[in-house]
Amino acid sequence: MVPIRVLVAKPGLDGHDRGAKVVARALRDAGMEVIYTGLRQSPEQIVRAAIQEDVDMVGLSCLSGAHNSLFPKVVQLLKEAGAEDIQVFGGGVIPESDIPGLLEAGVRAVFTPGTPLEEIVNFVRESVKKGDA
């Protein structure tokens, strides 16, 4: 059984990492290996880390409202680096009306405040399983 590897990243400048850290722990407790990048990561840094760490998924957390430019940028840079097999999901304070645009840009799922951790864990498990098939 190879553990699923997930990069949990904070793109942009906001310092609110409570959600990112709680999700990281929940994924750990579900048996996954989680690499946390820390704050203030540029999309370029996140993509580099994702590739070097050979993760299955990247989870992005943003609470400052900069998600519309940052999340799609990460997806696009992964693609440019030939690493589109690494799937991206996101979370944070994200208005409902922004979600379709993010999904369209290639973000696999967006989790807003109040999402049960179990839902996120299951999503990651299922997505990685599907990606392998």
Partner: peptide, 17 residues
Amino acid sequence: LPTQIGLDSDHPLADGE
């Protein structure tokens, strides 16, 4: 946020913020 961490608006990390 760029102002809060001492970056000008044209800094690459300020993009989107």
